[in-house]
Every structure is written in C-alpha cells, then in structure tokens.
C-alpha cells in the first residue's frame, strides 16, 4: 500500500481548523468541569451530609454511564423538555458535566490526602471551617492533584472526539468529512492522530512545567 503524503499535506489546513475547534471545546469543557468538580469535591468533604450525598449521587451517576450517552441525553434529550441547545453548547455542557465528576473525585482525594493536623491547626487558630479549607487545605491539595488534573484534561481532550456524533466540526469530524471526499482514510486518520498527539503532549508539558514552578517542599 502506498502512503499518499500529498493527500495528508493538502488536508493539513482543514485539520488544523478542526484541531482548533477541538481545543476550544475542550478548554471550555475543562473550565466548566473545574468549577463543577471543585464544588463536587468540596461537597464530598463538607460537614453537611445533605450536600455530601447529592455530590456522591452526581459522581456515581456520571461515572457509571458512558460519555456518548450523556452527550446524546443533553443534545437530543433536553429538547424534549423544551430546551433546544446549539450542538456546540450541548457538547461543552455534556463534557463539562462529565469531567466535573472525575475532577470532583480528584479534588476529594487531594483534600483527604492533606494531613488532618493541617485542618486542626487552622481551626485551633480560630478560623472557620471554610477559611481553614480555603487558605490552608485547598492550596496544598490543588498542588498535589496537579498531575491527576493533567491526566483528566488529556482524557477529556481525547474524549471530545465523541462530540463529532452531534455534528460539531471538531478534529475527528473534520477528518471524517475529508475522507468522504478523498477516500484517503489511512493518511487522514494518521493526520488526525498526529494533531491529537501534539495537543495532548502540549498539555502534559504545560502541567509538568507548572508543577515545577509551584514546587515547595513539605
């Protein structure tokens, strides 16, 4: 079999546009996921047991169902409730809600990994639970979970290929479209894989860099 470099070369500009769309949808999903995940993680360790069980239920439900099904539920299901979403918004929402559950577990793990004595020392100084969490426990926890968060971001970027199913022209979808025109599936999928790898590699380098910059000894 021949590898048609020219076909790949000619597809690069279109794939780049697709990659940028993937980057955009992933970045927004990460932002939504971080906000939800921080809340869910804090709720899991909050003294209030009602919030704790809500957060647990959310995390279990999301982790127990496929992202693809969640995407379909948001995109095709919500209109049944009278809420019509643009595919892009539906994609970001579904991925953000999905990521929030995983980030929530990571945040909870990070908080629980910080020695109990830190919270006790902060409380003993007269700080409230919230102040102790915010100024003492959380900064240490966030630092500690940075590598796990990086892994989650990378997983999310790759999983964003699933929103190609709701007609968002991100990287995977762009590849599919080019292939229907050129029939060069091998070359184009190689190109698609290459773009995914460049983006995930960049994220992993960025996380490692920020880890180094934030380093302190314990």
């Amino acid at each position: 079999m021949q590898f048609d470099f020219l076909a790949l070369y000619e597809a690069l500009p279109a794939l780049l546009v697709g990659a940028l769309a993937t980057l955009r949808i992933t970045a927004l999903s990460i932002a939504v996921g971080l906000v939800i995940g921080l809340g869910a993680g804090l709720a899991r360790v909050w003294p209030n047991s009602f919030l704790r069980s809500i957060s647990s239920a959310y995390i279990e439900l999301i982790r127990g169902t496929p992202l693809l099904v969640q995407i379909f539920l948001v995109y095709f299901g919500l209109p049944a409730l009278g809420l019509n979403l643009d595919p892009f918004v539906a994609g970001v929402l579904a991925m953000g809600i999905n990521s929030g559950a995983y980030v929530g577990e990571i945040v909870r793990g990070g908080i629980e990994s910080i020695a109990q004595g830190q919270m006790e020392a902060a409380l003993s100084l007269g700080m409230s639970w919230w102040q102790s969490m915010y100024y003492v426990v959380l900064p240490q926890a966030l630092f500690r979970i940075l590598p796990s968060l990086g892994n989650e971001f990378i997983a999310l970027l790759k999983d964003s290929s699933l929103v190609s199913t709701i007609a968002i022209a991100e990287l995977t979808r762009t590849g599919q479209i080019i292939i229907t025109r050129t029939f060069k599936s091998f070359e184009i999928w190689v190109g698609v894989a290459l773009f995914y790898f460049i983006m995930t590699y960049a994220i992993s380098r960025a996380v490692r860099y920020s880890e180094k910059r934030m380093r302190y000894s314990e």
């Binding site: 409380l123 003993s124 000894s217």
Partner: peptide, 16 residues
C-alpha cells in the same frame, strides 16, 4: 478557639 492557643506535637505549620 481564638482565645485558646494550641501547640501540637507535630507542629502542623502550613508548609505552603
């Protein structure tokens, strides 16, 4: 607790 200072065996300084 503001009027009670507490010193722990393991110090519990905030490392960050």
């Amino acid at each position: 607790r503001q009027s009670i200072g507490m010193i722990f065996q393991s110090f519990n300084l905030f490392p960050h």
